[in-house]
Design a protein around this nucleic acid. Structure first.
Lengths: 241, 241
DNA sequence: CGTTGCCTTGAGGTGCGTCAAGTAATGTGG
DNA sequence: CCACATTACTTGACGCACCTCAAGGCAACG
């Protein structure tokens, strides 16, 4: 039995599902694979006929830029459909990489297609989830364009906490976060050196500590205040479909 | 008769449509409205039950940030479905504003829903188009995070030319572009003053001129070179659905 | 014909990048 | 279990791309 409970949690907390829909989702996964850390699982530009469900671990969407720099467009946690957009785009505009060891299940597009034919509401729900990605991208584009480094780091910590709580992967106000400071910089458009300085300042202000691949938020209200965090872009409670 | 030719062009150049599909799309628009420049047509957070097709003019998706700054997440040209994502998100995470005078047609979500039921391929095609938005956001987030101002401006000009060519709204290598330098800054995460300096440098290098609400590209290969422009993120020729 | 919005340019400041060097943590083969 | 390499973290000094502040020009318009 494939463990897609995190995914069901993620979906159903936003859109309650009936038993038939849940059964249909459960039957999606094809093969399950375990991938070591720091591997590129899906390469930019390669056409694909399946999408990938992340069962455990952390992955990222990584763009290599023309000038040799790198940008992570999104971080993914257990329960995320990391490349559902390949259902319509076929080839992706970025790589998908593991950060730590990951379990992932592949879902053939053909199965999605027949599921959507049988359950049109699920089609809209999964469409919603790719639109959620877009909303997330918009938020981060704006943040990177207009917010100082401290705010960006604080925002990322707040977002990750909210997303991990949704799938029960936080413990109090702390959570696993298997990124290096360089990775953090690639997410936020900063150099690792400056990330280091920002982390130091968060530590000194007793707001949050990032150490040993874990984030511990010491003062959540304070951190939210620094980030001016408004989680509405995460659409944790959408209008009904 | 509503003029949605630009939209049909935009869709069909990526995915050839058969006559029944074209007829279905033609019957989507409800009322048509003409909006003056610089009006907010759709407000952030307000729930909506229709989407909007831009028939003529330029609009933008504008995010107002917590610190009073502003970011344009995307520019829209004739033929774009500017808020198709509201079909699944209901409330948007940004405002939608006109830049110049615009004609727009509203499309009730109920009509979309019944069209998608009858033509499942169209559902995938329109889903593709919202995923296209996401790819565009990713591209710009990366560019803003990692590219210098000159590259960003050059890239935007290259992108707009490609998108306007698609719907036959360019003339040679020049096109209407009803933005102020402040708007350009809000798109690219720059101050209007710095935008001005970049434009001056593009002008002096005989690469492009932006004047009187028009962009004239003098040296397209040169500009593409500055931008290191690779239009694959625009998915002008996707794999078949 | 004053007001307003947009463009333009200069002078000076700063947040973050670059360069450099050293320290810790982690892994690897003998 | 130790040499040793490698990768990640940390901190300081310095530079620059871009921001801020300021002032003036020009065109559109009521």
């Amino acid at each position: 039995m494939v463990d897609i409970e995190a995914h069901l949690l993620r979906v159903s907390k936003r859109h309650p599902l009936d038993p038939a829909e849940i059964a249909a989702i459960r039957s999606l996964p094809d093969e399950v694979r375990t991938i070591p850390p720091r591997k590129t699982v899906i390469h930019e530009g390669v056409s694909t006929n399946h999408s990938t469900l992340l069962l455990s671990g952390f992955m990222c969407r990584s763009k290599s830029l023309a000038n040799g720099k790198r940008h992570m467009a999104e971080l993914h946690v257990a329960g995320d459909f990391i490349d559902l957009h390949s259902f319509t785009l076929k080839r992706l505009d970025h790589d998908i990489e593991t950060l730590n060891a990951c379990q992932m299940a592949s879902v053939p597009h053909a199965r999605l297609r027949s599921m959507f034919a049988e359950f049109p509401r699920l089609a809209r729900i999964y469409w919603f989830h790719t639109n959620l990605d877009a909303a997330n991208h918009r938020y981060w584009a704006s943040s990177i364009a207009q917010m100082p480094a401290l705010v960006r780091v604080a925002t990322l910590f707040c977002e990750m906490l909210a997303r991990l709580e949704l799938v029960s992967l936080s413990r109090g106000n702390s959570f696993d976060f298997p990124l290096t400071q360089t990775d953090l910089g690639d997410c936020l458009g900063l150099t690792p050196i400056h990330v280091n300085r920002v982390l130091k300042s968060l530590r000194e202000d007793r707001l949050a500590v990032f150490r040993n691949k874990r984030v511990e938020i010491l003062d959540l209200p304070g951190l939210r205040d620094v980030a001016q965090f408004d989680p509405s872009y995460l659409y944790l409670r959408p209008d009904p479909l």
